[in-house]
Design a protein around this nucleic acid. Structure first.
Lengths: 113, 113
DNA sequence: GCAATACTTAGCGATATGTCTAACTATGAT
DNA sequence: ATCATAGTTAGACATATCGCTAAGTATTGC
């Protein structure tokens, strides 16, 4: 089970902040510069920088610098482990339902006899 | 856009802790008492209680008390908003790819002329 | 009744998080 | 060379988080 994976913790933690989610949504549309990202948030540049570094350490964005401009881009595959974990939980839960179904079926058959 | 939804923040935050994920995986298999959940974690009861209340406030689990025993159960639908948000991001990103595709197709057609 | 069981509450301490201001570096434009 | 732009670093501050111990309450079993 991947629960104790620190990457997964970092990923979910990165997604737990509204500003960071807004930045991701913005970047999902197209890459952007740091200042462009800061604008809509109403936050100061250093604050946004911090959010960006959280996102980058979680692998959710990649950045590169050209001259004095840093361009940020989303890394779509980075969302996969989160999705996979959610899928796993659902599978476990559904597996439990399946076992319940099997149980009910068995009881019903026994009744027929 | 649901980014500024505090529920979503609470949800992702609840999922960002390995102990809480382990608890959820355990509960996905079947409901359990508080002490049963605490056992595998190696953490003290009050600490586990805190995790449980974070999970409950995020809507991920529901608990009920019978006598002196509190039983915790998973709430599978509670994962949906996280899943939905991830889907939305993917849709936005894929929409961008689609537009890129369309652009490439147009350029190719223009070249043919 | 009394002891054991199963939480629950209160409060402490270390560390992490999210925000800011102030001062700095590097690059581009004139 | 000078100045504006774009980002960076350093440090402060309030609050939140995660773990703990110690001391409660409420139920159950003998």
């Amino acid at each position: 089970m991947s629960n104790y994976d620190p990457d997964l913790s970092r990923l979910f933690h990165a997604l737990a902040d509204p500003t960071r989610r807004a930045i991701l949504t913005r970047l999902a549309k197209m890459p952007a510069r740091v200042t462009d990202l800061a604008g809509p948030t109403g936050l100061r540049l250093p604050t946004v920088m911090r959010h960006l570094s959280v996102l980058e350490e979680a692998g959710l964005i990649a950045t590169s610098k050209d001259g004095r401009i840093r361009t940020c881009a989303i890394v779509p595959e980075a969302f996969d482990p989160a999705r996979t974990w959610l899928d796993e939980q659902r599978a476990i839960w559904e597996g439990r339902l399946d076992r319940l179904d099997a149980f009910v079926m068995r009881v019903m058959k026994e009744r027929e006899e």
